[in-house]
Amino acid sequence: MQKSVFYGALAAAVVIGGAAGAATLDDVKARGNLNCGVSTGLVGFASPDASGNWEGFDVAVCRAVAAAVLGDPQAVEFIPTTGKTRFTALASGEVDMLARNTTWTFSRDTDLKLDFIGVNYYDGQGFMVPKALGVTSAKDLDGATVCIQTGTTTELNLADFFRVNNISYEPVPIETNAEAQQQYLAEACDVYTTDASGLAATRASFESPGDHVILPEIISKEPLGPVVRHGDNEWGDIVRWTLNALISAEELGITSANVGELSGGPTNNPEINRLLGTEGTLGDMIGLDSEWAQRAIMAEGNYGEIFEKNIGENTPVGLARGLNAQYTEGGLIYSPPFR
């Protein structure tokens, strides 16, 4: 009941906000910087360093959009949002886009009047257990105590999974990820469950990560993607195709190292030429100049580079590409053609 009133108010506000501030692109250009909503802190995805510069996988998307639109990857104001404030921040126009590990769901896309412009990370809920427990599959977890964040979709997914497999568990409700790590290490629970990327980051922070295993079962779909307001399709297009440009760049072998050279003049590959603006007028069609994609790629590199730099296997987070490999490598990352 309360929820529907809240969402109703939110929806009303979005309608008003959408009608009044339709041209986000003009606002951003006039302001000279992009207001990008990010997490208050999520390992590998968004965090400020000691001098207050934000970095991370989600942050890189903001920088690419700023580079494409404004020509400067540094022209971003990062606005930290919590799980509770993120959608109102977007709806009220406080931020121009959200790049905040937000799961694309039906109700968010429709009822909340948001537009998910794509997926930059395919996540899913997993389980972590101590190796000493000798468990190799989540289906062996009958009777286990499970540390779980309350009030999240993970809680519901967990209940579904155990019910479908007809096994029992005992939940240990906790409030934050930090608390969960402490509880799990103190052996207050046998299992810790949250998104697999979060599990990997958590495990990486342990003293002896090798003593803990992440079980193979992934029990939910959590496609995370950047979000914009409903109703400003021009702006949505810009953010969507900036992300797609990063993805296509990896597929086409354009990296931050060779993008300068490739955009020097037309190459033999027409799609590279169209993407980098040495051929055709794709930039005009979304209201930007022809070099927009060059700048987006130069900002932090292509999708693969961003992945490797922030959350890839050589970082402390140490995530394998998995589902997030290019479709040519057996993953789900796929950009529509630049044509």
Binding site: V43, A46, S47, G56, A178, A201, S205, P316, V317
Partner: peptide, 16 residues
């Protein structure tokens, strides 16, 4: 709030 942001840095993840 900052303590959470600091923990999100891979250097300091896991410090409480």
């Amino acid at each position: 709030g900052l303590s959470n942001s600091i923990r999100a840095d891979t250097d300091w993840n896991g410090i409480y």
